[in-house]
Simulated assay, not measured.
Amino acid sequence: MYTYDSFETLGVFTLLRPMYITVLVMSLLLFFIIIIPKFYTRWLNGFAIISLTSVLIFVSCQLLYYSGIIVDEIGLGGDPVSFYLFLAITIMGAINIIIYFLKCGKSTK
């Protein structure tokens, strides 16, 4: 029915799943940069953490929204894995912000 078979897997639209995985990997990378003291530099401040986390969550939110539109238009089912990846990205973003400010509060005391 479609030009490429990778658009769907068992009637579920999975084309955007690699984008979710990429955003999750970037969120995990930010997490490890916050945790490991060797990578903790002067470029890593509260504004940078909040900005990067907000951009990552915003991009994953837009991916979820647009995949819903695409699924509705072509008549496929939604991808629950993509939704769970969106939740994981959101939770990791909250954890990144909380850990940064807890670590920042300990270092100034």
Results as ranks from 00 to 15, higher is better:
Thr22Pro: 00
Arg17Asn: 04
Val55Met: 12
Val25Ala: 13
Thr53Ala: 07
Pro37Arg: 01
Ile35Trp: 04
Gly46Gln: 11
Ser51Tyr: 13
Ile57Phe: 09
Phe32Leu: 11
Phe31Asp: 04
Ala48Ile: 09
Ile34His: 07
Ser54Asp: 10
Val25Tyr: 08
Phe47Gly: 15
Ile36Ser: 11
Ile50His: 07
Leu30Arg: 06
Ser54Asn: 12
Ile33Thr: 11
Leu52Ala: 08
Phe32Tyr: 03
Phe47Ala: 13
Trp43Ala: 03
Thr41Met: 04
Ile36Gly: 01
Ile35Gln: 07
Ile34Thr: 04
Val25Gly: 12
Arg17Ala: 07
Trp43Pro: 02
Met19Ala: 04
Phe32Thr: 07
Tyr20Gly: 05
Tyr40Thr: 02
Val55Ser: 11
Met26Trp: 11
Leu52Arg: 06
Ser54Ile: 00
Arg42Tyr: 04
Phe39Glu: 00
Ile33Pro: 06
Ser54Cys: 12
Leu29Ser: 12
Thr41Asp: 06
Phe47Tyr: 14
Thr22Glu: 12
Leu29Lys: 12
Leu44Ala: 09
Thr53Ile: 02
Ile34Trp: 04
Ile21Lys: 14
Met19Trp: 01
Lys38Leu: 13
Ile36His: 14
Thr22Arg: 10
Ser27Asp: 09
Ile33Asn: 04
Ala48Phe: 12
Phe32Ile: 02
Gly46Thr: 07
Phe47Lys: 14
Met19Asp: 08
Trp43Glu: 01
Ile35Tyr: 01
Ile36Met: 03
Ile50Gly: 02
Leu52Cys: 10
Pro18Ile: 00
Tyr20Ser: 07
Met26Ala: 15
Ile34Lys: 06
Leu28Asp: 06
Ile21Leu: 15
Met26His: 14
Ile36Cys: 03
Val23Glu: 06
Val23Lys: 12
Val23Thr: 13
Leu56Pro: 02
Phe39Thr: 03
Ile36Lys: 03
Arg42Glu: 11
Met26Arg: 15
Pro18Lys: 08
Tyr40Ser: 11
Ile33Tyr: 02
Phe31Leu: 02
Leu29Glu: 11
Asn45Val: 09
Thr22Met: 10
Phe31Thr: 00
Lys38Met: 01
Thr41Asn: 10
Gly46Phe: 02
Phe31Glu: 01
Val23Ala: 10
Leu44Cys: 00
Trp43Asn: 08
Val23Tyr: 10
